[in-house]
Each structure stands twice: as structure tokens, then as C-alpha cells.
Design a protein around this nucleic acid. Structure first.
Lengths: 342, 342
DNA sequence: CGCAGTCGTGTAATCGATTCCATGCATCCA
DNA sequence: TGGATGCATGGAATCGATTACACGACTGCG
């Protein structure tokens, strides 16, 4: 592959001049510039990003470590992140943690070794030493979706509290009284928060959330299946399950179907995170939709602000309830509880 | 960030010795090794991958350019690729072409500039000059899923011919005679091939594939919707649509539903590419499943073979039909046409 | 006419690693 | 005991860029 030296030789100038042309530094004669550009063209020269990064200590690359690529929510997030980053002149390297802390650390370490300019993380656990250390060492970093409390890193996330309240209102209106939740890992903020929001909303209607109605999942489909089976085996099974993410909802659907039961007649279902497929499942699934794309874009903007020396801001966007048919029909047909219809 | 010089100073040895310890070169005394490791520990030193790559001309990184990250098929492929690559000591940088040739070229160029060791591509179009040039220049490269004919690059893909034949047998057995297809872009091999396989299979049953029953899609949901609407507006609409990928099937489902019609009663539906959600749609969708994970792993192995100087092999794996309910029930209940049941 | 300032250019240092080569010292065998 | 061999180590070149600094030529002003 042609290097800057080859271009310099071909154009009959020094490497410094070539470099100046490439970085359009003002102090180059029109003649020299033309000769360099011709040489670049003739040799098909492309600057070596590795060498450039070594010298300038900038890679123009962002790392994105997400919890699970197979989860459509994170896929959409990743896509938005890449688009916004590209618009701002950055590339993105994605690391898939697969909800495993050690894999997350592997990717963080690899990204750090590559000297990425900044890191976007949706932490799988409550605080890997590696990440805390990186944050303290000054690596530009932004948490997205999930975060680690007590660390001085901006957080871009969505607040589902109001939407969960709307959901409980909707369920209560239909007449459901025994509501259960498939929670995410307690080590994640979203895992804990969604349970808390659910519990508080239930309390407003004088309903409790017994231990037996809190199933411990891990944001993956299998756990949703397992927990739902447990619920169905209870002496008094719940009337509704609220899955804390879309994959566990898929698992719940699997479990219900495997028993030959039906949603919502035998068990109603709602999920956190809306995805296109929910419109077409049998029945269409009521879900809480996050502004995923906006979240990804805001996270990139915050990170790039931090990298380029501007003060980054944390951002919280609202989620909203999308009512479909998986929880049954509201007998009084009161549209007030239906924030949106798809 | 600590560099190798700092470690050398701390350990009281030269940088050469530090480097030797790090790359466990045999010729280092136990004493020196211990001092170096202690210094590495004390300083929290991590080698700079950028500098290392510049010197060794190896990045231990693979580029993967896929057509669309939002497509669950490619997501699964990407995941398998990353896993296998990690097992072999490589990282993966994913570029999402979003079915747009110019975006694909952007990513290929960026990856090449970063001097990745090899490139895995599922080309969006029939032959970007950039990619042809890279292949000719000797960049290790492997095509996965789709390929560009006439280029000397190994191809790892799955052959759906037999499965399409099984599908047509299944449809014919149910009694369908007017079969339509939502094709992918003609510029892609999979776009063309699936139409051809379908046409040939139809011919075996004495059925034709009229122009009006070939809808031009682009592998995205919107086009599936649009084409399906066109089919429904025909004086004699088809009885079945076969979508050449899962997203266009989603679009078709949308279109049917928007008209208040039902699958399979008003229009039967089958899709290429199976995904977990197809089990739960209304009705569950009959699909042709590719061995996606195995495809990704085989592609990585072929690429790494090529990179490390072993002769790479092209690989073709068989796809298989998964019968569900979206095409209606087979009246004679002949299980011979049902290759698999989920 | 002379000196200061500007402009274009080249030389060389530098980023952080790897690795060839030379050197010094210990060991071994004749 | 002496020369050959091998091992551990350090010095320095190198990868491909960027950029501080020096320098020569030209311009313009007093």
C-alpha cells in the first residue's frame, strides 16, 4: 500500500507538504497542491489511520458496549448511535456484552486498548472495577439506557415511571387485580427501577406486589419462559405479567403457548420496550415504548460534547404506553387510559 | 496513560526487555520478567494497540459490512461472526450499509483506512468499484450470504433451492395455484436467486410466474407493504405471497392487516429467513430457515484461513423449510412436505 | 536600498510499540 | 586455559503519519 513517502516522491515534494495538502493547511502553493493531489490520485493513496492516530492521539472512534445485540431495542439504539456519530465525523465500534459482565469487561478493555476517543455503555452489572477505573482516569464516557449510580458520568436514558403508571391504570381499568412482573437483573438500574415503578403504581390502586409475583429474569427470552411457567404453577396465578423487556415477553409468550393457554384470556401480557413485531404477535402486545432513536442520538451528542471539551449534559426522555390487545379489552372503553394506539 | 517507556523506567530495564516480556519471548531472565510484570501491575499499563498495529502491520481486527443491522437475520449473523472471531483472537468492526451502496462504500473505505486484517462483506449491490479494487489489491476478503459474481473471493452462503422446492410443494399440496413473490433487489445475488429458485420450482408443478406476480422490493419492510398492496389491487390477486426476506414479510403482514384481511384465509404468506418472532405472529409464519450461526462461523474461519496464509474454502450450507400456519392447512395432511415443525 | 515580515517548503523529532544487531558475560568442551 | 557457544540485555532503526522549527525567497515600506 502506498504511503505518504511514495506520494511525496511521486509529486516531487517533501512528506510535510503532502501532509499539509491532505489536512488542508493554508500554507501550500497552488502548484504544489495540484501536484500532490495528482500523485494521490495516481497512486490511489489513502492515509493510514493507524499512523495518524498514533501521532495525533485521536482515533475519531467511539466505543459502544451494549448488553445484547439480539435484542431489537439495542439494535435500534446501535443504529441510531452509528448514524449520529457518522454525521459528527466519528466511527463506532460495537461490543456485545450478551448480559455477561466478563464479556462486557473484555470489550471495554479492547476498546480502551484501541484508544477510542470515548465510550458509550449500557452496563450489564452494577459496577465493574475496570469501568469505574476508566471513568476515574478521565476516559470520556456516557451511560445510555442503564447506568451505574455514584459515578460521575452523564446518563442518557428514558423515564418509564409515568408510562408504567398509565399501564397499571389500564390494567386496573380492565379489572385485573393480581399483577406480576418479570424483573430484570437487580444489578442493573433498569432491572430495579421498573420493579419499583410498578410497585409504586400498584400501591396507588391499593394493590400490593407479593414476592411470589416478582420473577427474577435476566432480560433474555429463556428467563421469561422460565419465570412465566413458575407463575402459572402458582396456586393462585397472576392475571397479568409485565415483562421488563421485549425478549422476556417473547419467552412469556412461548410459555403460555406451550401450555395451550391463550393471551389475554388465560394470562394478560405487557412489556417494556416496543418493537415492530409486537403489532403482529397473537395478540398484539401492549408495550411501553422508549424514544430509542432519540436516546441514541442524544447519547452520542453528549459524548462528543465531552470529547471536544464542551460540558456534556445528562438527558432523560419520557417513555409512553402503547395499548394493544394483549391485556384484554377495557369494559368501560375509557380512552383516557389509552395514551396511544397502534 | 503509561507507555512502555514508563514501564521500562519503573522496572529498571530497557523497552526492548519490556516488549520481550509482553510478547513472551523466551530470552528473558526470570528476574527481569518479574520486575517488568510488577511494573506493569503497578502502573496499570496496557499496550497501545495503535502503536503495535503500526509496527506489526496487523490489527487483529476483521471488518464486517452487512446490509442491514435492523434485520434480525443479519443481527444473528453479526453475533455469530463476533463470537467466532473472538475465539480466534480477532475483534470485529461492524459497518451497517442499510442497503445503500454509498453507505457500504463509506464503511469499506473506513475499514480499509484502519488497516483491518480482513473483510467480510454481504454486498448491497452488484459490484462497487471500491470493493473490486480492494479484492484485486489482495485485501483478504470473504463474501457472506450475498456475493459478487466474477470476483475471485470465497463465498460462504446457504443454498435455498431445495427448501424453496419444498415450499412450493407444500403450497401446491394445500391447493394454491396463483403464487407471487416479493423479490429483493436485482443487484443482489440473493435477490435474483430466490426468484429463480421459485420460478423453477413452480415450473415443476406446471405453474408459471407472471410478471405481475413478481413485486420488486428492497429487503426492507416498507417495500413489502407496498408490493403487497399492489398484489391485492390486481384484478386477480395471488393466493400466496412469498417474501424474499423477513422484513418484507413483516411489511406484507402490515398491508394485509391494514386492509382488514386475514392470513392465510385471504392471502397466504411465506418468508425467506426464519426468526424467533415468526412463531408468535398471527398466524405463525412458514419460513425458510438458514443455518445463520453456522454461516457466520464458517465465514470467519474462511477469512482467518486466508489471513493466516491457509487456503480458504467457499462453503454452501442447505436451508430448510419450517412449516407453520401462514399458508393454510394441508388437506391431505401428508407429512412428507413438512420438513420440520416448530 | 535595506530590513522586517510573510509565505512556501524541507528537515527532523515525535507518537509507542517491535525487532535486528551488537555486546558482555557465563558456560562448556578440548 | 582458551576459544567457541549461548543467553540476557540494550541501542537504535523502523512503521506512517503530524508538526515545530529553520531557512530561503519574495514583498513592501520607510
Amino acid at each position: 500500500m502506498a504511503s505518504i513517502k511514495d506520494v511525496a516522491a511521486e509529486a516531487g515534494v517533501s512528506v510535510a507538504t503532502v501532509s499539509r495538502v491532505l489536512n488542508d493547511h493554508p500554507s501550500v502553493s497552488a502548484d504544489a497542491r495540484a501536484r500532490v493531489l495528482a500523485a494521490v490520485e495516481a497512486l490511489g493513496y489513502r492515509p493510514n489511520a493507524v499512523a495518524r492516530s498514533l501521532r495525533t492521539d485521536q482515533t475519531h472512534t467511539l466505543g459502544l458496549v451494549i448488553s445484547d445485540v439480539m435484542n431489537p431495542y439495542f439494535t435500534e439504539l446501535a443504529r441510531a448511535v452509528e448514524e449520529e456519530a457518522r454525521a459528527l465525523g466519528y466511527s463506532v465500534i460495537i461490543g456485545n456484552a450478551d448480559e455477561r459482565p466478563e464479556l462486557q469487561d473484555h470489550h471495554v478493555r479492547t476498546l480502551l486498548d484501541r484508544r477510542i476517543d470515548g465510550l458509550l455503555v449500557s452496563p450489564t452489572d452494577g459496577g465493574s472495577p475496570l469501568m469505574l477505573e476508566a471513568a476515574r482516569a478521565g476516559t470520556p464516557m456516557v451511560f445510555v439506557d442503564r447506568w451505574i449510580p455514584g459515578v460521575d458520568v452523564p446518563v442518557v436514558r428514558s423515564d418509564g415511571r409515568a408510562a408504567v403508571r398509565d399501564l397499571v391504570a389500564h390494567l386496573h381499568g380492565i379489572g385485573h387485580r393480581r399483577l406480576a412482573i418479570i424483573a430484570g437483573p437487580a444489578a442493573t438500574t433498569t432491572g430495579r427501577e421498573r420493579v419499583e415503578a410498578f410497585r409504586e403504581a400498584l400501591a396507588e390502586y391499593g394493590l400490593g406486589l407479593p414476592e411470589a409475583y416478582i420473577g427474577q429474569g435476566d432480560f433474555q427470552a429463556d428467563s421469561g419462559r422460565r419465570v412465566t411457567e413458575g407463575f402459572l404453577d402458582l396456586p393462585e396465578p397472576p392475571q397479568v405479567v409485565f415483562a421488563a423487556d421485549n425478549l422476556m415477553a417473547l419467552g412469556a409468550l412461548d410459555a403460555v403457548r406451550a401450555r395451550g393457554l391463550r393471551v389475554p384470556d388465560d394470562l394478560a401480557l405487557a412489556a417494556f420496550d416496543d418493537i415492530p413485531w409486537f403489532v403482529h404477535t397473537a395478540p398484539p402486545v401492549t408495550a411501553i415504548a422508549q424514544p430509542t432513536g432519540e436516546l441514541g442520538r442524544a447519547a452520542v451528542r453528549a459524548l462528543v460534547d465531552r470529547i471536544e471539551g464542551r460540558p456534556p449534559r445528562s438527558v432523560t426522555l419520557a417513555a409512553r404506553l402503547v395499548v394493544r390487545r394483549s391485556c384484554g379489552e377495557n369494559p368501560d372503553g375509557n380512552p383516557a387510559t389509552n395514551r396511544s394506539q397502534t
